[in-house]
Amino acid sequence: MQKLYSNKLVIFSLVLPGLLVFLFAILAPICLSVYYGFTSYSGMGQAEWIGWENYKTLLRDANFGRSLTNSLLLAIGFIFIQHPIAIIVAAVLDKLQGKAEGVFRCIYFIPNVISVAVIAYLWKFIYNPDFGLLNNALRALGYQGKINWFSNDTAIWSVLVVLIWHGFGWGMLIYYTGIKNIDPVLYEAASIDGADQVSTFLRITLPLMKPVIQVNVTMAIISALKQMETVYLLTNGGPGNSTQFAANYLYQQAFKAFRYGYGNAIGVVFIIICLLVTVFLNKIFADRQPA
Results as ranks from 00 to 15, higher is better:
Pro84Ser: 10
Ala75Glu: 11
Ala189Met: 02
Gly65Pro: 02
Asn7Arg: 06
Met209Gln: 04
Phe280Arg: 14
Asp61Asn: 09
Thr177Gln: 09
Thr69Gly: 15
Tyr176Asn: 04
Ala254Phe: 02
Ser151Gln: 12
Tyr232Trp: 14
Gly261Ala: 07
Asn216Ile: 08
Gly167Ile: 03
Ile174Phe: 06
Leu186Pro: 00
Ile50Pro: 01
Ala137Lys: 01
Val279Thr: 12
Ser67Val: 06
Arg259Leu: 01
Trp157Ser: 13
Gly45Ser: 08
Phe104Pro: 01
Ile221Gly: 04
Pro211Gln: 07
Val159Lys: 04
Asn236Glu: 07
Ile79Met: 08
Ile50Lys: 04
Ile271Lys: 08
Val15Arg: 05
Ala220Met: 03
Leu186Ile: 01
Ala257Ser: 10
Val15Tyr: 08
Tyr143Ile: 06
Trp165Leu: 08
Ser6Pro: 02
Gly98Lys: 13
Leu141Gln: 13
His166Val: 14
Pro29Arg: 01
Val161Gly: 05
Phe245Ala: 11
Asn248Lys: 15
Ile88Lys: 01
Ile26Ser: 07
Val103Tyr: 03
Ser67Lys: 06
Ala246Lys: 06
Ile88His: 06
Gly145Gln: 06
Phe109Ile: 14
Lys8Ser: 09
Ser42Thr: 13
Val279Cys: 05
Asp183Asn: 09
Glu188Tyr: 00
Ile174Tyr: 06
Tyr36Glu: 06
Asn282Asp: 06
Val269Leu: 09
Leu16Glu: 02
Ile182Val: 08
Glu188Val: 00
Phe12Gln: 10
Tyr36Leu: 15
Ile204Asp: 12
Leu23Gly: 05
Arg60Glu: 11
Ala155Asn: 14
Trp170Phe: 15
Ile284Glu: 08
Tyr249Asp: 12
Thr230Met: 15
Arg139Met: 13
Gln227Cys: 14
Ser223Leu: 12
Phe64Thr: 07
Ile114Val: 12
Gly171Met: 07
Leu186Val: 00
Gly98Arg: 09
Phe80Glu: 03
Val215Glu: 11
Val89Gln: 01
Ser223Met: 13
Leu96Asn: 00
Tyr127Glu: 14
Ile272His: 00
Leu276Val: 00
Arg288Asn: 14
Ile79Ser: 09
Ala28Arg: 14
Val215Lys: 13
Ile271Ala: 06
Ala86Val: 04
Thr200Tyr: 04
Ala117Thr: 15
Gln144Arg: 11
Cys106Gly: 10
Val268Gln: 12
Leu160Gly: 04
Trp149Ser: 05
Gly77Thr: 03
Ala120Ser: 12
Gln252Thr: 05
Asn148Phe: 05
Ile119Met: 14
Met219Cys: 12
Asp193Trp: 02
